[in-house]
Simulated assay, not measured.
Amino acid sequence: MADIHVEEFYKDVAIALIQLYAAFPRRINLFVEDIAGPDEPDEFGLHSKRHMACFGALLWLSEEGLLRYVDTIRQEALDQAVLTREAFVRLSAPAPQALIRELNASSTEAELPPSVQKDLSTYIHLLRSALKSGSSSRISLAVQSSFFIDTGAGSVH
């Protein structure tokens, strides 16, 4: 079992990427509260560790070249965020069939038309399906497979 902060990181990343993909190519404000939930700053105006971990995950996505943004809105949001070309192409790409079966993303896929099957085999669909399942292990596998692991060889990029 992974550390809870790592599981939260994968969930935050999945939610952020799904929000950005849904808006692509428009730029949007990416609010930490929409991803990690409500936060009440303490008496000194400092955010919780959970809030700051989510904000850090968003900044990390930018540093790794998966999203761009114009500015931060304090520590509450990324202003005018958009997926990079690399992230958009990867999320739109078909995932390996073995990964789709492992994540059990579409058990009724064989009954669907080929165009729908193609849409359901993309990395973005795997992320959406994993997030909808609520399973931390499915979410982490979907995020790792989308960006960090070469699913053919099982090695990190």
Score class of each variant (00 low, 15 high):
A2G: 01
V6M: 03
E8I: 04
A16C: 09
L17C: 02
L17I: 01
Q19V: 01
L20A: 11
A22K: 14
P25W: 02
R27D: 10
F31Q: 12
F31N: 12
V32P: 05
D34E: 15
G37W: 01
P41C: 07
E43K: 01
F44R: 11
L46R: 04
L46C: 06
S48Y: 03
R50T: 02
M52D: 15
F55Y: 06
F55S: 06
L58C: 10
L59S: 06
W60H: 04
L67Y: 11
R68Y: 12
T72M: 14
I73E: 13
A77I: 06
D79W: 08
Q80F: 02
V82D: 05
R85Y: 08
F88Y: 00
V89M: 04
L91M: 04
S92N: 02
A93Q: 11
A95V: 04
A95H: 01
L99H: 07
E102L: 13
L103A: 08
L103F: 05
N104G: 15
S107Q: 12
T108W: 02
P114A: 11
V116K: 04
D119R: 09
T122Y: 09
H125Y: 13
L126N: 13
S129L: 13
L131K: 00
L131G: 05
G134K: 08
S135D: 14
S137C: 08
I139K: 01
L141D: 10
S145E: 06
S146P: 09
F147L: 14
F147R: 11
D150N: 15
S155P: 07
V156T: 15
V156M: 14
H157I: 14
